[in-house]
Each structure stands twice: as C-alpha cells, then as structure tokens.
C-alpha cells in the first residue's frame, strides 16, 4: 500500500509543481492520474521513487518513508518500485534479455551485472516474464530492432523483473497507436490483477483511462481536483480538471476503440 501525505514539490525556479497532495493507493488498485500538461503528473510519480526530490511531505510504501531515506537505503527501496516510461526508456543498444535482466540490477553485485553472469533464478524469471509479455522469441534481439509496442512490453517485463510492490507508469501509451495502446493497457491491467499489484498510471487519454482504470485522480496545477471511480468522471468533473471543452464530441470520436477491442479479444482467444 502506498500513502502520500502532504507531498509538495517546488522547483528551483520557484514553480510549484505539486502542492499538498495526499493519496492512498491500496493493494491491487490501478489508479489513473489525469490532468493537463504541466499539472504535475510526471512530477508526482517521480517524487515517489525520488527521481525528483520532493520538497515536503511523506511517501509511505508499506511503513517506510521513502522521502527521508539516505542514498544507499533509497537504492534498496527503489527495487520495490517498478517504473514504466513513456518512450520505453530501454537501453537501445542492449538486447531484450539484457534489458529485462537490468531490472535485477538492484539485487546483484556489480561484477555479476558487468559480466552478465546473473543467477539462474533471475534468468529463469526473465524468460518467464518475456513469455508472459509474448516476446519469448525476441530475447536476443537488440532493443532498437523492436516495434513500439514490443519495446513497451520489454519495459513492462523489466519493471516486473524487480519483483515490485508498486508500479509507476508514466504515459505508457503516448508514443503508441490506438490499437497498440489498448493492447498495452490490457496487458498492464491483467498483470496487476494477477499479482495484486497496485499501479499509478499517468495518462492523458481520458477514454483510455476510463476504460482501464479502477480509480481516477485528476490533477490541476499540482493539486488533486478529482478523485473517484471512472463513472464519476462527468463533463463537469472534466471541466474542473482540464477547463472548458466539448467533451461529448471528443468521446464520440473514439470509434476505433471498439475495433481495437474486438481485435484484442481475438488475440487473447488465440493465446488461450
């Protein structure tokens, strides 16, 4: 379980990116974080694993306050948090397998990682994960030889290799086409359900968020302005988050969604 308590971030420039954010994400919950550009979504999830240092507040993962840790202890705690990135952030010149195994870096000594001599259990687990995300045959391909959707699957496998207690997902579909986006979102939600894994997902695509998230938090100018189930995300709620716009027209325009749905169902049946 993750609890944020009064989390604030003010950048050196004086810009306040987050002010007094308090949230609790229970085990197994997939929480979508929506809001306009610059609302602080990215800052929020980076404050949790401290890729960005919060200025005030607590980040409690279980009963450890991540905001107060020293360097070495922070590294150990980061292993508990898997992160998935917008543009995959794979190490492009390494193979798929090396990328997945890099999720184990926090667990192995330097010489093992340098010589690529990972423990047998780690390797077995990496293969298991690659199989789970459907990339078993790509293990020895270089990451930059894969398509966008495949790369994001590697990103997911890398995060899961950490054996995390929490997933931070930063715009996982921003660089993907609508169909691949839905496949990736489905994979993510399935995996979270399988492992009872909580996740915070930054997402700018509102229909996608409503379709896949169990709970939605809306940020505007660094403050939580909405917190509820996807059904409660009415036109009025969207206006408080984003400002005035014709929301119904936007939703209607999402026709390809149904098509992608059907396609994805067919794919799942083919696997089963």
């Amino acid at each position: 379980m993750l609890t944020l308590d009064g989390l604030s971030k003010t950048y050196k420039t004086g810009d306040s990116a987050l002010s007094d954010v308090s949230l609790t994400v229970p085990k197994g919950q997939i929480m979508g974080l929506i809001g306009p550009s610059g609302a602080g979504k990215s800052t929020l999830i980076r404050c949790i694993n401290r890729l960005v240092e919060p200025t005030a507040g607590k980040v409690l993962l279980g009963d450890v306050d991540l905001a107060r840790l020293g360097k070495a202890e922070l590294r150990r705690q980061r292993r508990r948090i898997g992160m998935i990135f917008q543009e995959y952030a794979l190490v492009e010149r390494l193979t798929v397998m090396e990328n997945v195994l890099s999720g184990r870096l926090g667990y192995v000594p330097f010489w093992r990682s340098f010589l690529r001599k990972y423990p047998a259990a780690d390797i077995q687990r990496a293969y298991q994960l690659l199989d789970r995300v459907g990339l078993m045959d790509k293990a020895d391909n270089r990451a930059d030889a894969l398509s966008g959707g495949q790369r994001q699957r590697v990103g997911i496998a890398r995060a899961l290799a950490q054996n995390p207690e929490l997933l931070l997902v930063d715009e996982p579909t921003a660089s993907l086409d609508p169909k691949t986006s839905r496949q990736i979102m489905r994979l993510l939600t399935e995996i979270c359900a399988e492992r009872d894994l909580p996740a915070i997902v930054n997402i700018h695509d509102v229909p996608l968020a409503q379709q896949f998230m169990q709970r939605i938090v809306g940020l505007n100018a660094g403050r939580v302005v909405f917190d509820g189930p996807p059904e409660a995300l009415t036109e009025a709620a969207l206006t408080t988050i984003y400002g005035e716009e014709d929301w119904n027209a936007m939703r209607k325009g999402d026709a390809e969604q149904a098509e992608a749905e059907a396609d994805a169902r067919a794919r799942m049946e083919a696997i089963a």
């Binding site: 890729l51 980061r78 870096l105 926090g106 990682s113 340098f114 890398r158």
Partner: peptide, 20 residues
C-alpha cells in the same frame, strides 16, 4: 531517459554507468 530508467531499478552508481 535510459539512464533514469536504470536508476529507477535501484542500480548502484557503477551499474548505472555500465548499463545506462
């Protein structure tokens, strides 16, 4: 971003250098 991703796994400084 690639370096950030390696840091996020809990890798040590030397590991970030050699993987990121």
């Amino acid at each position: 971003r690639q370096i950030e991703a390696i840091e996020a796994t809990g890798a040590s400084g030397a590991q970030v250098l050699s993987y990121g």
